[in-house]
Amino acid sequence: MVLTLQRVKIGPWGGTGGHAWDEGGHGASAGSYTGVRRMSIGSSWCVSSMLFEYDDNGKRVKGTLHGERDNGIPEEELDFHGEVLTHMCGYHDNHLIRWLQFRSNRNRTFGPYGNLLEDQAGWTRFEVSMEHSGSIVGFCGRSDDFVDAIGVYVAVWNPERFYDSMRRQGVRVYRASPLRMDLRQIEEEKKKEEVERGRLQKELEEGRESLRNIRLKLDMPPDQRKRLIRRDLRVEHQEIERQLQEMQQLERERQQLEQQEIERQLPSRQQLEQQEIKRQLQDMERERQLHRWRNFVTGGETL
């Protein structure tokens, strides 16, 4: 089975709650997924969750869980590449997907998921069938705790039969070429190209100016050429001297900052002298007290 590069988006059907999600495979190797390999649909009083695994030209790609997690949900495996999804139908109540069912090209049914036993007043039925003209290769929709809406991406095998079938079913389709690029990415690439073009243009102008100067020098008389060379050397020497002075000034400023930091961290000389005098006075006072105590013990003085 050969899938063309033409992709279309159908739907979504359902409510507008939750957050939007899109698994059309726009970043896949061929611009979109090439099929559905596995799916796991949560079923309660509505379609509570869905998780799909897609095919990207032979590579398995697992989608994101949409809805509430339930580890007891069984997985449905398709015999890909020979088996593909070609039909989807269901009901929604303008808020949530209440019932859902799929069918493959081998007439194998997946589902139903959800509950049709409740009062269906206000429910809306939706259905899309490719009728041997395409297959479902991706999904989109909205979800939060449950699945609010669902739509599909279809790989078209027979465009004439496919669009005729969609018209007869009253289904609106949107072309979704896998070759499309995000507009923001296009703008960023355009800006990068403009910057690179400007840089190359500047280098080209500088090269042309250098070439003109060289030609002028070659066309000059020898004496004038020597004077010009000496002038260029003087200018270059002055520029080197200027850069050297700037470097020396920066070095002096750096040394001053280091000295200021050292002086800030270390106590001043006067503070050190005061601390030393205070320590000596404390030692003399302790010595005097010790001397008086000795005199008292020997009877020579009273405390």
Rank of each mutant, 00 (worst) to 15 (best):
R199Y: 12
F296M: 10
R294Q: 15
C89L: 08
R286K: 14
V154K: 03
W99I: 00
A155T: 06
L117G: 11
H26N: 06
R225M: 14
D144Q: 10
S165G: 10
D93G: 05
R252D: 10
N71R: 13
L3Q: 02
G25W: 06
K226L: 14
G15I: 02
E209N: 01
E253I: 08
E206P: 03
N213W: 14
L183E: 15
M166D: 13
R227A: 12
Q282H: 04
V8C: 09
T302H: 04
D164N: 14
D55E: 05
I150E: 05
M130D: 12
F52V: 08
Q101N: 06
E253K: 10
L218N: 11
V36K: 00
R60A: 13
T302I: 02
V2Y: 01
E118Y: 09
E77Y: 14
E287L: 11
E187L: 11
T4Y: 01
I240C: 07
N295M: 15
W45I: 02
G17N: 08
R199N: 13
T4M: 02
M50L: 15
G114D: 00
L244K: 15
N71L: 12
R106E: 04
Q282C: 04
R294N: 13
R208W: 12
Q249D: 15
E209V: 03
P222N: 01
T4N: 09
R161Y: 02
Q282G: 10
L3N: 00
D283T: 01
G63Q: 09
R254L: 07
E301R: 14
E188T: 02
L85R: 08
M88N: 11
R227E: 14
G122A: 13
D182W: 03
R108N: 05
D56M: 04
V171S: 00
N213F: 12
T86W: 05
M88P: 12
G90P: 07
D219Q: 14
F102Q: 03
V154M: 02
Q259L: 08
D148G: 01
Q289H: 11
K190V: 06
W123H: 07
E77Q: 09
L179G: 07
K278S: 07
